[in-house]
Design a protein around this nucleic acid. Structure first.
Length: 298
DNA sequence: CGTACTCTGCAATGCCTGGT
DNA sequence: ACCAGGCATTGCAGAGTACG
């Protein structure tokens, strides 16, 4: 592929925000283990056979709020409405829906026209503010809305809650989507990945440089997927951690690297990640994958 | 042990919406 | 149009934890 001139960056090189900047400082992945604890063995096995299987293995991951801010502040300004690009280790990394699908395993297909009609939106809100100061917990909202008594349905709803709007009570969810909860089979195959990805990109894309300069910034959706895309593209970030060397093995395909990432206890060492970025140790990781590639933006 | 980082709670601010 | 209330977002600070 011909190398073209890169688009301009959100911040000029060397002028990115520094310090303790954070993205989604209230986002964590503990809900995954909580859901697993709430399920009995059979129900858990059933759920592990669905699109949620990969996400359910991420309970040992720590979402690095500072690392997320680090690479998002190195964004490239592109006209791609549904893609985010950022520079890492001297290379442009793309975050598109196929990348999201690869790292999360969630269904990202376009919903059929018959299943998704109308553009009306409903706001599912937590009473009180987004940090749980209100009088109604997330769980009771789902119970109030959908009458869940079943642990499986509740866990799946919880998964979607975590994927779509982790720690955020303001995510707009279409009524058609909410109605999916009435039918478990439909719910399990619904493209939740697409919902989450669109939320993420549409909330991150319009953010101004000024907002990235602030100490904290809130982005909806499953932002941890961005971290996984970056780590998969540049496993050298984890070379300091346990098992990092095996992950950074040049001969491994992206699917194999992802398998290692998902199944392990994962926490990004931000100072080391910055070192890797500055040394330019990224590799064209997806060369052996037919689904995902790193290429220069048009 | 010190430092850096994550996580959490509380408060302030500003936006949105509904009522008048 | 104006006002008031509710709520999301952000800022700040401190406790807990991991790591060198």
């Amino acid at each position: 592929m011909e190398e073209l001139e890169l688009p301009s960056r959100l911040f000029e090189t060397g002028f990115e925000p520094v310090g303790r900047k954070r993205v989604n400082s209230y986002f964590n992945l503990r809900w995954i283990d909580l859901i697993k604890l709430a399920l009995d063995k059979d129900d858990l096995e059933m759920l592990q056979g669905t699109q949620f299987a990969t996400v359910l293995r991420m309970g040992g991951h720590t979402f690095s709020v500072m690392f997320a801010h680090y690479f998002l502040s190195r964004q490239l300004v592109t006209e791609k409405e549904l893609e985010l690009w950022w520079m890492f280790a001297g290379k442009p990394l793309r975050y598109a829906i196929e990348d999201f699908a690869l790292v999360t395993g969630l269904n990202c297909e376009e919903p059929s026209a018959s299943s998704m009609h109308g553009k009306e939106k409903v706001v599912v809100r937590v009473k009180g503010n987004a940090r749980g100061k209100g009088t109604t917990s997330n769980s009771s909202i789902w119970e109030d809305l959908f009458g869940f008594g079943d642990a499986v349905a509740f866990s799946i709803a919880g998964s979607c809650w975590g994927i779509l709007c982790p720690m955020c009570g303001s995510t707009k969810i279409r009524p058609e989507v909410v109605n999916k909860l009435a039918n478990l089979d439909e719910f399990l195959i619904y493209p939740w990945g697409r919902e989450s990805f669109l939320l993420t990109v549409k909330s991150a894309k319009p953010r101004s440089p000024l907002q990235y300069v602030q100490d904290t910034i809130a982005i909806q959706g499953f932002v941890h997927a961005m971290v996984l895309v970056t780590l998969t593209a540049c496993p050298a970030i984890l070379v300091k951690a346990e098992d990092g060397a095996s992950i950074a093995d040049d001969n491994r395909r992206s699917e194999e690297i992802l398998e290692s990432l998902v199944s392990r206890k994962l926490a990004v060492n931000v100072p080391w990640a910055k070192t890797v970025d500055q040394k330019g140790q990224v590799r064209l990781l997806f060369r052996s994958s037919s689904r995902i590639k790193i290429y220069f933006a048009e």
